[in-house]
Design a protein around this nucleic acid. Structure first.
Length: 471
RNA sequence: CGCGGGAUAGAGCAGCCUGGUAGCUCGUUUGGCUCAUAACCAAAAGGUCGUUGGUUCAAAUCCAACUCCCGCAACCA
């Protein structure tokens, strides 16, 4: 039995869970369930990123202690992940003392590749942050939020020398030792890598108080990178424990907005530690609301909880795993969602279960033995992380079953009294349904479990209420 | 001239590498069936395959130019 480790990006806890986070979890979960189906032992990390100024100042604004604030927000994500029925095994918080200590240890081990330098740039006192030269220019040198002119300021930062690792990173990406999916993202990364600068990995304490202190320098706090990225290995116990059973990760699931950090910064850290790179970086796109990017200012943000409440978890997973392409941006509209639920989940699958179970019950078919077998095409699609296509493929099996029932007309066999033939036909159909059901299991864990128990029960009978009721 | 991707039926996509009657899913219309959640099955309508030119007996497919859209372009957790 092989051991598989899967990672998801850890969201920053200064906001509520949104649909983009759900995509990370869903993709990783489908793959996790698939791997378990294939007999792997899966370790599956999720977590929350909890340091940084935004969290600190929001806590203060709301008059709560920062510890309580991050606890509260981390719990929101924990609850969200539960609601999505994500089969994770490890939940990490970057404020976990073990994580903090391990980060400091990792920093020490990277010291050959870390140097100190002055950073100079445009700074806004109100925002307490530097802005890019471009942003400064766009705002004509004045911060729009605070109506104060930006100042030239310099501060001392520690930097991670990316140049030390560029060639190795390039090599591993080109050879797909670390495979970036989809392919066009790989091209983007290779291009970025050519001019990748060293990365600032600390801030003076005065700038950033809520974070992991740099070991050996009390004036500096680690800036996000080493703190957040290293969660993928600290959760396994690095460097206290040997992590080679699980590391390198089979796959890390991320949104396109954070690809560069996972494809350049993270590999640099790993190489600096002498660790192998993750085998796959699976990058999904954005969910658009009716063709537009979701944003608070436009006010078109679709709340995942609202979608969940509408028709339940299976419907949620169905839409975002089948009708949202695994790798590219895709659209969500309520109309499409309703359409998918009513005409595909309810009519194709729900109704199929209903009619076949009814036929079996009327004709006294006993529970079918769960068939075993491998579907090569399906396995290949899943192994290539082409989940929406694999789901499509599995669905063709469902549709074929509806067709097959119509063609074989078991109700006519019942009328003409061809009992033996009738039983054969129905048992074969039930068996085929279980085969299709198996392919759907990673995508629709709840519904497939119900279907499985219906057709393997000693007496097959339709569910009390339809699997996907329509109103 | 930054790099890259794309333009195919109302929507979303495949086909292009290896030219030869244009295909899938959803939606629409009609017919059939009755085991089933007014569900299911079948058939039909709907595209001059972004534009122009070239190569060829033959171009969605190869070549060139053009138009339009989109992704990426360093502190975005």
């Amino acid at each position: 039995m092989s051991k598989t480790y899967l990672c998801t990006a850890i969201p920053y806890v200064n906001g509520n869970p949104h649909i983009g986070h759900a995509m990370d979890y869903l993709l990783a979960d489908v793959y996790a369930r698939f791997c378990r189906m294939m007999g792997d032992e899966v370790r599956f990390q999720v977590g929350t990123d909890e340091h940084g100024n935004k969290v600190f100042s929001t806590a203060q604004k709301n008059g709560v202690s920062v510890d309580d604030y991050v606890q509260m927000n981390s719990d929101k994500f924990r609850k969200f992940i539960k609601q999505l029925d994500i089969s994770y095994t490890d939940f990490i918080r970057t404020t976990d003392p073990e994580h903090v200590r391990r980060c400091q240890e990792i920093w020490k081990r990277l010291e050959n590749h870390i140097y100190s330098a002055e950073y100079e740039g445009w700074y806004c006192e109100g925002c307490e942050r530097f802005v890019t030269a471009k942003e400064c220019e766009e705002n004509h040198g004045v911060c729009p939020d605070h109506q104060k002119p930006y100042q030239q300021l310099s501060e001392r930062n520690y930097y991670l020398r990316i140049a030390d690792f560029k060639d190795k990173i390039r090599d591993q990406i080109e050879k797909d030792t670390m495979q970036i999916l989809p392919e066009f993202r790989k091209q983007e990364v290779l291009q970025l890598l050519a001019d990748a600068p060293d990365i600032s990995i600390s801030r003076p304490r005065g700038q950033l108080s809520w974070g992991v202190p740099v070991p050996g320098d009390d004036d500096q706090i680690m800036y996000v990178w080493i703190d957040a990225l290293s969660n993928y290995i600290t959760v396994l116990g690095y460097p206290d424990q040997d992590i080679s059973t699980y590391w390198p990760a089979q796959a890390q699931f991320i949104g396109k907005d954070i690809l560069r950090f996972h494809a350049i910064t993270w590999p640099a850290i790993l190489l600096g530690l002498g660790l192998p790179l993750p085998k796959h970086l699976v990058t999904h796109g954005y969910i658009l609301a009716d063709g537009q990017k979701m944003s608070k200012s436009i006010g078109n943000v679709v709340d995942p909880i609202e979608v969940l409440d509408k028709h339940g978890l299976d419907a949620f997973r169905y839409y975002f795993l089948r009708h949202v392409d695994t790798f590219t941006d895709a659209d969500f509209t309520w109309e499409k969602f309703e359409n998918a639920y009513n005409n595909e989940l309810a009519n194709d699958l729900g109704n199929l279960v209903q009619r076949l179970a009814t036929l079996c019950k009327k004709n006294g078919i006993r529970g079918v033995i769960n068939p075993t077998g491998e579907d090569k095409k399906y396995i290949k699609l899943m192994q290539n992380f082409e989940f929406s296509r694999a789901f499509d493929y599995a669905w063709t099996k469902v549709q074929a079953l509806n067709k097959s029932i119509d063609e074989q007309k078991p109700w006519e066999l019942a009328k003409t009294g061809e009992t033996e033939r009738l039983h054969q036909v129905l048992e074969k159909l039930a068996c085929d349904l279980l085969v299709a059901n198996q392919l759907l299991t990673p995508f629709l864990p709840t519904a497939t479990e119900k279907i499985h128990s219906i057709f393997t029960a000693p007496d097959i009978a339709p569910p009390e209420t339809p699997l996907f009721p329509k109103n």
